[in-house]
């Protein structure tokens, strides 16, 4: 049922909440994004462990990379879905017509996708540690900062570029082609930070990679917010 539309202009946070709840409700009903991501990431983890057949020592070295790449590949499918859903029934056009602040739409989408990817990581994490026989030798709690920051970098850029590539032909193909090169520095920082934690080799005493990841997040989130309206209104 349609709810009565109030004429009162809404606050920015209320807009974000409305969009976010809508996305979460759609996902709760279909579970498309999380299921497909989860299975895909699981496949990548299995594929890598078969392709490399790692020993315990070697797996500490490569596990960070495998986890990041598995997340990366898996989230592309969900990110493609994020805006495709809005195309059905011309929701995207309706959103563009609303007088509300566009950045609220973007932030809500990023939050929703961040939540989906995080759920996948939480479910996949134990499997990952079992398959690769991992036991962090460094400060394991740092992973709680590294992984969300890296995921944020991926999801914020991915949501932005998904909105960008939705207007092209072959949009499903285009997203990874433009997202991966831009995401490379964050991937590098994330992989090296995870590796430092897992191997505990003390090669990064000043948490340089964590700081770089945070800086990357701030820079790219700012630019995305500034340019999102341009992308949404690109005609």
């Amino acid at each position: 049922m349609m709810q009565p539309v109030s004429a009162q202009p809404r606050g920015w946070f209320e807009l974000v909440r409305t969009h976010l709840l809508k996305d979460l409700r759609i996902e709760w009903r279909s579970r498309e994004a999380i299921q497909s991501m989860l299975f895909f990431a699981l496949l990548v983890v299995v594929l890598f462990s078969m392709a490399f057949d790692p020993t315990a020592a070697a797996s500490r070295e490569i596990a960070g990379g495998v986890l990041c790449v598995a997340t990366l590949f898996a989230s592309v499918s969900a990110l493609n879905q994020a805006w495709t859903r809005e195309i059905r029934h011309e929701v995207l056009d309706a959103l563009r017509l609303t007088p509300a602040d566009r950045s609220a739409i973007f932030v809500a989408k990023v939050l929703a996708n961040f939540f989906f990817v995080t759920v996948v990581q939480i479910l996949l994490g134990p499997v990952f540690f079992i398959f690769y026989n991992l036991r962090p030798l460094g400060n394991g709690w740092l992973l709680l900062a590294v992984i969300p920051l890296g995921t944020w970098a991926l999801v914020a850029n991915g949501t932005f570029f998904a909105a960008l590539s939705i207007r092209s032909r072959n949009r499903e193909l285009l997203l990874p082609l433009i997202l991966f090169p831009i995401f490379l520095p964050a991937l590098l920082a994330m992989v090296l930070a995870v590796k430092t934690v897992l191997t505990g080799d003390g090669s990064d005493p000043h948490l340089l990679w964590l700081k770089m990841l945070a800086g990357y997040d701030i820079i790219f989130m700012t630019v995305s917010l500034l340019l999102f309206d341009t992308v949404l209104q690109a005609e």
């Binding site: 590539s165 207007r167 092209s168 193909l173 285009l174 082609l177 433009i178 005609e235």
Partner: peptide, 16 residues
Amino acid sequence: YLLLRRFAEGAQMQTL
């Protein structure tokens, strides 16, 4: 960047 220019068209492609 050059790929994007092939995949999209017209004025919106230039913006993107």
